[in-house]
Nucleic acid binder design. Structure first.
Lengths: 177, 177
DNA sequence: CATGTCATGTAAGTGGTTACATGATTTT
DNA sequence: AAAATCATGTAACCACTTACATGACATG
């Protein structure tokens, strides 16, 4: 799979000026269920984008706060995203150690798997709680970003997914073997 | 994320003797929605497992067919799986270029995204059709494997997921902007 | 007899994580 | 004063894919 780091960064910078650290935070909190990036990808990629003229530095006019470099997208950067949007998508990839374990587990392993299912369900519940809070925030406030609508759309899928996971876990746990 | 290739292979070999090629096929067709492996991982890993005594070769008593090497799991291999099952699971990871695009797309990109959504929905429909067929096969026949039940469980989640995707896509496409 | 699928492999390259280094600022 | 978090970065390592090579057997 080709590296897509630049598109995440540019995509978020399209809406507001952000630093590398802030970008990482947003990806971790809000995009976790369909995307992830590490600092080892983010910082070098920001440098490349800078060199290529896709983004530019915006020095913070600092009062008391330590100065932090935020990046601002350029027209070239917007074009980069636009052409990417037109391309075909690569197939989604998922790796779930939990589902792998469940798939290969046998009757004798049920006690162990039960615990894993409970943990998985708890994680889904916490994830759902967070998503619902975020959803409420988004729908109550005015549209801050151009892609407000799209964020809600994706979030709705995330919510649906967590609910599915939870009921599926509950069904499994009802059985005693 | 630590490499988990050995557990997929051992997990499948726990149920029946299979060749590298057959293992790859099963992973691609039946486990695609939560796991994937390439030949570049499978063949070298089989060699390692052989050296470590987790599996052993079973020469096919060949009639007309070209002889093909199937692997058979050993007690040591079964133990390896067993201890892995007890470990904590790493967090699931997903990368969906489609959802990433939707997330960062704006109102002006709607026409493009509409096409992507249609393609995504079609893929989900095909996936669902295949899962339902496989589900029918599994529930109609006698339990061939120790993990028959578990396969159906995971499959049920897969089916639920595809259905969720489809209705979510339909809702999105109802809107005209 | 050519094309496709079966079947096994490997080397090179890319994608991605982890661990570490550094130091400022904030919180306890 | 210590611990946590903010903030930026990099090098080494690991995981994984891709492209290629090889050849047998099957199908039209």
């Amino acid at each position: 799979m080709k590296k897509k780091t630049r598109y995440v960064l540019l995509g978020l910078l399209q809406e507001e000026d952000l630093s590398g650290y802030e970008l990482k935070q947003i990806i971790d909190k809000r995009m976790r269920f369909f995307w992830q990036e590490s600092y080892g990808q983010i910082y070098p990629e920001l440098k490349s984008l800078l060199v290529e003229g896709m983004i530019e530095e915006k020095q913070e006019e600092s009062g008391t706060k330590r100065e932090k470099v935020r990046y601002h997208i350029t027209d070239k950067g917007r074009e980069e995203i636009y052409t990417w949007l037109l391309e075909e998508n690569e197939k989604d990839t998922t790796r779930s150690e939990f589902l792998l374990k469940l798939y290969v587990s046998q009757k004798k392993d049920w006690a162990t798997m039960r615990k894993h299912i409970e943990i998985f369900m708890d994680q889904a519940k916490m994830q759902l709680e967070f998503f619902e809070l975020y959803h409420a925030q988004l729908t109550s406030c005015i549209e801050l970003h151009e892609n407000h609508r799209q964020i809600v759309d994706v979030l709705n899928l995330g919510i649906g997914q967590q609910r599915l996971y939870i009921t599926w876990c509950e069904d499994l746990l009802k059985r005693e073997s």
